[in-house]
Simulated assay, not measured.
Amino acid sequence: MRWPLDIWRTLFAPDVGTDHSTEPLNYENTQIARGAYLVQGLGHCGSCHTPRALTLQEKSLDERDSSFLAGGQVIDGWVATSLRASSPDGLGAWSEQDIVDTLRNGRNAHFASIGPMNDVIQHSGQYLTDQDLAAIALYLKSLPEIQGSSKVGFKADETTAKALWSGESPSRGAEIYVDNCAACHRTDGHGYEEVFPRLVGNPSVLAEDPSSMIRVILGGSRLPSTQQAPSDLVMPDFGWRLNDQEAAQLVSFIRNSWGNKAPQVSDQQVADVRKAMKEEHEQALASSEKQLIAH
């Protein structure tokens, strides 16, 4: 019954013998070429960070198409962010060292990894050589920014920080933030470097699809423990404390404060994510029970 796969491969898998799209690209230097090899091949970053068509093939395999590593794909409920030079929902504001630090330790001065990316860092990224990490970072920073309209944006604005600092609560979402989040992420949204990530201009915060952020707030998150950063810092879950409306108000506040600009989040979006997380938990428990019975 492998004939459907044969048809799929004929339609979508590149033929290195005849497909012109497999011709080598000319890179500026060997380090960028090495980074391209690692990202496109061994690292297969596009498997998550490149959007897929309805027939499930990656829409592009290298930077000759603007969809390559453009993000937006939802995998197991988590949104893969853009790895292009787009800002703010990509790596435009990141330095090469920021990329290296994230791949090695799951954190940099203003960002912390979440969701499936933690597994990538735990089991792969932290073991890459300095040379390979630098090559990957250089290649990713060489990718051009994606042109086009976006529903998200960022332009630093201190209005929210000043209001919260003075004791004003411009919205119910702001009140929830002060009560639950400000102790770690601060009233200015900048957090603490390599400990509590900043929410200001954060690509995960500004993703058009808010699923990842909703998941972090409802279920919490844990940083991967690596050789150079062994502390697996934990963010607690707030799903037990916040109802759907409160969580939506909180996420919407964060996504539209300190200069962040992203679509508002509805109660229904939170309810959908909460339901999906509950089903995932129940499936995991059922699977564990089956394994125990089998042994």
Rank of each mutant, 00 (worst) to 15 (best):
G201E: 00
Q283I: 10
L140G: 01
V120N: 07
D119L: 13
T102Y: 03
L206K: 02
D89Y: 07
L128S: 01
A247F: 05
R52W: 07
M117C: 06
S86R: 15
L38S: 06
R222T: 15
L250R: 02
W240P: 05
P230C: 06
A85C: 08
D19G: 09
Q122D: 04
P197G: 12
L83C: 05
I32N: 06
A183D: 07
L38C: 03
G167N: 06
L138H: 05
F12W: 12
E63V: 13
W94F: 15
T102W: 01
A207G: 04
S66C: 05
G259M: 10
K261I: 04
S82M: 03
S113E: 03
A33H: 05
Q73H: 08
N256E: 09
C184A: 08
Y192D: 14
N180W: 07
A271I: 05
K278T: 15
P203G: 06
E208R: 06
Q291G: 13
A294K: 14
P14M: 11
C181F: 01
Q40W: 08
P170C: 05
A80S: 14
K141S: 01
D132Y: 10
H281E: 14
T160V: 12
L133C: 03
S257E: 05
Q268R: 15
S60Y: 05
P88R: 08
W94P: 00
Q268A: 15
A80M: 11
Q57S: 04
Q264V: 14
K261S: 10
Q269A: 10
H281I: 07
K155S: 15
V16N: 10
S67K: 12
